[in-house]
C-alpha cells in the first residue's frame, strides 16, 4: 500500500484534482488556483519520475557516489517555475482588469455580459 504513495501517483492525482477544479468551479480566482495546482503536479512529476534511492544531487564532487540524480528534469523545472509564475501573474492582472469591467468573479456572469 505505502509503495503506491510515491511522487508519481500523487502528482497524477493532484493533476486531475486541478482539472476537476477547472471544470467544476465557476470562480475565476479558483480557476487560476487550479492552474497553480496543475503546475505543482507537473513539477512533482518531473522531479520524482526517475527517482532512485540513494542518489546524490548532481552538484559539486559526485565521484564518491555510484548513483547521481538526473539533472535535466531539475533544470527544466526551474524554467517551468519561472514561466508558471509569469503566467499566473499575467492571468491575475487580466483578472483584475476583467473584474473592474464586468464586476463579477463568476465565469458565467461575465460571459453573459460579454454576449450582450
Amino acid at each position: 500500500m505505502m509503495d503506491y504513495i510515491n511522487g508519481e501517483t500523487v502528482s497524477i492525482v493532484l493533476f486531475f484534482t486541478g482539472v476537476y477544479g477547472l471544470i467544476a468551479r465557476r470562480n475565476i480566482v479558483k480557476s487560476i488556483i487550479s492552474l497553480g495546482i496543475l503546475q505543482v503536479a507537473i513539477i512533482l512529476y518531473f522531479i520524482s519520475a526517475n527517482f532512485e534511492e540513494g542518489a546524490v544531487p548532481p552538484i559539486g564532487d559526485v565521484s564518491s557516489s555510484a548513483i547521481v540524480a538526473d539533472p535535466l528534469p531539475q533544470a527544466l523545472m526551474i524554467t517551468d517555475i519561472v514561466i508558471g509564475m509569469g503566467v499566473t501573474a499575467a492571468s491575475l492582472t487580466m483578472f483584475i482588469h476583467m473584474y473592474h469591467r464586468y464586476g463579477s468573479t463568476n465565469w458565467l456572469k461575465v460571459k453573459r455580459k460579454r454576449m450582450k
Binding site: 486541478g18 492552474l35 512529476y45 503566467v87 476583467m98 469591467r101 460579454r114
Partner: peptide, 23 residues
Amino acid sequence: IYDGTLYLLINVVAMSFFLFGTG
C-alpha cells in the same frame, strides 16, 4: 479583455497537458 483572458487561461491549461505528457 474577456476574450484575451479566456484565450490565455485556456491555452495555459492546454499547455499544462502538454508539459505533463512531456514529463
